[in-house]
Amino acid sequence: MKAAHEPAPLVYRHNRVTRLSHWLNALALLILFMSGLQIFNAHPHLYWGNTSQPDAAFLSIGAANEDGEQRGYLQLYGRQIDTTGYLGVQQGALAPSARAFPSWLTIPGYYSLAAARRWHFFFGWLFALNGLLYVVFNLAVGHLRKFFFTFEDARTVPAMIGYYLHLRKESPQNGEYNPLQKMAYTSVFVLLTPLVLLSGLAMSPQLNVAFNWLPAMFGGRQSARAIHFILTFGFLFFVFAHVFMVLTQGFFNNMRSMTTGWYREKLPLRQEAPSAPREIRPDIARALNSEGPRPKEIIDLVSIADIPVDLVREGATEVLPEADGAGSTLTEQEGKKDVEPGS
């Protein structure tokens, strides 16, 4: 724990490209998810293999008439679960109607496969190009390295889980990102995203012409469709976990870092950590903030710290107040916010 009289400094954590692509990505994922469910509704069955024999679906969402009442169901490998009120049937203005995913979960809300496809393919491009921009830029500036999951990280995963479960006092984190974060982000980058893109493309008949192996690598065109659907819930799981962590690990701090870039370090970085440079020493900030020519050694320090000078200037005003203790007010407020909902 850090000393109470010396609040952790703000660090510039997310560059402009990261912040922009993060929010574009959030929008794209939301629209892809909801329009994808509408597309699924056109044929709410999943199969393995190349073709779709009607009785061979391993998953179906549907509606059945039971004693004059419409019941929704989800059928998975022959087992039926009653899902009335959630899936299969939706109460309309006049009468219940068969609908796999309810209208509040789909884009558009009314039934239109054509419109859903337009949304899906447009935002599919946005998702892919935005992801490409993010990866290329952050590879170039060396940002991706910081949360790339390594074998060394794998060894500290149990310790990190222990820390989150309050079984351990000390976090094994020794960089900006802890091993669990690295694991989550890396699996999204190297597994989830490539697979969701490829399984989506594998459904295109023209790309089947261009690359015969594309549907085959998933075990057939219907398998690709099933995998595309299942991976969607991988993203959903990631988003829920991500939002949960943001809400519980300092909502305002996290939101500030993803909108302005500046994050208040909560854990003291371990001494042997090589990643301290992102901290801005108060004396540097003070010097930058004052009028007059900049001392040369400050410029040198800034360039060593790998922070663009104009960005330091931007954040400098934020760093200064806490050097004389005023910054702690914010931390207290944040603490209160976290406690409030329970009272």
């Binding site: 337009r118 949304w119 393919f121 023209q206 261009a210 690359f211 085959a216």
Partner: peptide
Amino acid sequence: ILESAEHVNRRVHRLLSGRYKLAQ
């Protein structure tokens, strides 16, 4: 706006497939 993706798809797909590649 959304339809613009369709034109991109058509062009990119044809570029990738050429004219005489065969469907599986």
